[in-house]
Design a binder for these strands. Structure first.
Length: 216
DNA sequence: GACCAGGTCCTTG
DNA sequence: CAAGGACATGGT
């Protein structure tokens, strides 16, 4: 059986995707409109999602859950709402930077919608505080673009599966095995990986390599 | 009390 | 370029 998953990296990536899809089926993942996803993408950096939900709720209650509002809001008001997500000072600065980019540079999310994915991605990456994972999360879940999200879990699972490619090429690798332009497939594939890794791969004990032994 | 959470930036060697 | 530190609250 080992021969069945000793092939090249793309074959292994494809197997991960198919096995986890068979195991989890359809699972809900990252709800919210475009602007809420953008905000959540920054707040979830190095933080549990449950804490992000609390902050999003506070932001909504205080009418701060839009780019326009964040762009003009007082720093302390934003900090108070996002404190429960940790790193609240730097995250407030990042939210401000993103809001300025959206409102001033793009003239709102409607303007961003018209940009090609590559252009939009480059723009997001230029915002201080937005790296590859945050940018791809925004593109994939906020704008419905097929831009696969590579996070620490994905890299970990890839290693467990024997994929030898460096992290920098994992995005391209997974995109090569996913149906083109099918955003929903991208959404679910990432969700499945996170769901599996969160449950079975901790620092203390890891069963990641067992993925490849499951039926897919 | 120690350790970790769906990263990113900045500084050093 | 790789490695190390800073950022900070909340849950186990």
């Amino acid at each position: 059986m080992s021969a069945s998953y000793s092939g090249n990296n793309a074959a292994k990536a494809g197997k991960i995707v198919n096995i986890l899809k068979a195991r989890f089926g359809e699972i809900p993942w990252w709800p919210g409109d475009t602007e809420e996803v953008m905000i959540g993408a920054i707040l979830t950096q190095q933080t549990r999602w449950e804490n992000v939900e609390q902050a999003l709720q506070l932001l909504k209650e205080r009418n701060l859950c839009t780019m326009a509002a964040l762009n003009t809001a007082d720093i302390p008001a934003i900090e108070a709402a996002v404190r429960c997500t940790g790193f609240y000072r730097i995250k407030t600065r990042r939210l401000k930077a993103l809001a300025a980019f959206v409102v001033e540079t793009c003239e709102g999310t409607a303007g961003m919608d018209t940009l090609p994915t590559a252009t939009l991605r480059d723009g997001l990456l230029r915002v201080n505080g937005i790296g590859e994972e945050t940018a791809d999360s925004i593109l994939c879940y906020g704008f419905g673009r097929p831009s696969f999200v590579i996070d620490a879990y994905t890299e970990h699972i890839a290693r467990c599966a024997g994929i030898t490619a460096p992290r920098s090429s994992l995005k391209h690798l997974f995109e090569s095995v996913l149906e083109e332009e099918k955003t929903h497939v991208y959404h679910q594939a990432h969700a499945h990986i996170v769901e599996y890794a969160k449950r079975w791969c901790t620092k203390k004990r890891c069963n990641g390599c067992r993925i490849m032994a499951l039926n897919g």
